[in-house]
């Protein structure tokens, strides 16, 4: 009798994903589905897709989905949670969606302590529209709207979302991870699972920022894009848990 060690999680359907080869969106989609499956969540999950490369996320998940206006996914989720208080809601956003046009929405959802889990893809670029500068683009990083490299004097400085939101009272769990290797992929799945558990226990707002790749607009191979994250991006966006008020039933870590 052979044992299945690894298979596609149930919450993902059989639609081929449109993401570019090696794009980490695909990995994160799977981790969300795996985390929910481990928590026994299937029938009562609702996802909110952003505007950006993940605008078509609703094509890949089996659960009920909304496609929100650019930057407004946290507001849509707020409305959904009021209407369906017992549903497990995840909000999937990119850095343009969350930290640029949607900054007010994410800050206020966080400070309201909204009981949903935000999966924040920080790849430092606007992917869907062809590689423009994002709020998380690093100084010196060349994009189609910072062609000589981002100049803080002219284009402002990157925004560190985990640090920013962790100063608020509403969030229960904020962490930043990567998916550049097996170890970090598994750590990301645990972080996502913890976010969903916070939500189930109504502990408040949870957000997992995942440093992600955009091979096409990095002009790097999928593998070199992963190296870029490990060698460059993590220096600007230190990994770790930025806020964790603990789960019910968990003894306080001294």
């Amino acid at each position: 009798m052979d044992q299945v060690v690894f298979r596609k999680p149930k919450l993902l359907n059989d639609t081929p994903m449109h993401y570019c080869p090696g794009c980490t969106h695909g990995i994160v989609h799977r981790l969300i589905a795996e985390a929910l499956e481990e928590l026994g969540e299937y029938d009562n999950v609702i996802g909110i897709a952003p505007v950006g490369c993940a605008v078509f996320a609703y094509n890949y998940f089996r659960c009920d989905m909304y496609e929100a206006a650019h930057g407004r996914a946290p507001s849509v989720a707020t409305g959904v949670k009021r209407a369906c208080e017992d549903s497990t809601v995840f909000v999937y956003q990119g850095d343009g969606d969350l930290a640029s046009i949607g900054m007010a929405e994410i800050v206020h959802a966080a400070t309201r302590g909204e009981n949903f889990t935000v999966i924040f893809i920080n790849n430092g670029i606007y992917g869907m529209t062809g590689g423009q500068m994002a709020p998380t683009t690093l100084p010196g990083q060349k994009t189609t709207t910072s062609q000589q490299g981002r100049d803080p004097k002219e284009h402002g400085n990157p925004i560190k979302v985990c640090e920013l939101l962790s100063t608020l009272t509403g969030p229960a769990y904020i962490a930043r991870t990567t998916v550049t290797d097996v170890k970090s992929v598994r750590a990301t799945r645990e972080a996502i699972k913890r976010g969903f558990t916070m939500q189930k226990q109504k502990r408040g707002f949870s957000l997992i920022e995942i440093l992600s790749t955009c091979p096409t607009n990095f002009h790097l191979s999928p593998l070199d894009s992963m190296k870029y994250i490990d060698e460059v991006a993590v220096k600007a966006y230190p990994l770790g848990v930025y806020k964790d008020i603990g789960l019910i039933g968990e003894e306080k870590k001294q």
Binding site: Y66, A68, R72, S75, G79, A83, E105, H108
Partner: peptide, 20 residues
């Protein structure tokens, strides 16, 4: 919910209305 802006409020309506 008093939203942070009218932009946010109408998108909350999108969510709640969309949930029936």
């Amino acid at each position: 919910v008093q939203a942070e802006s009218e932009v946010s409020a109408i998108n909350m309506v999108y969510g709640a209305g969309g949930a029936g």
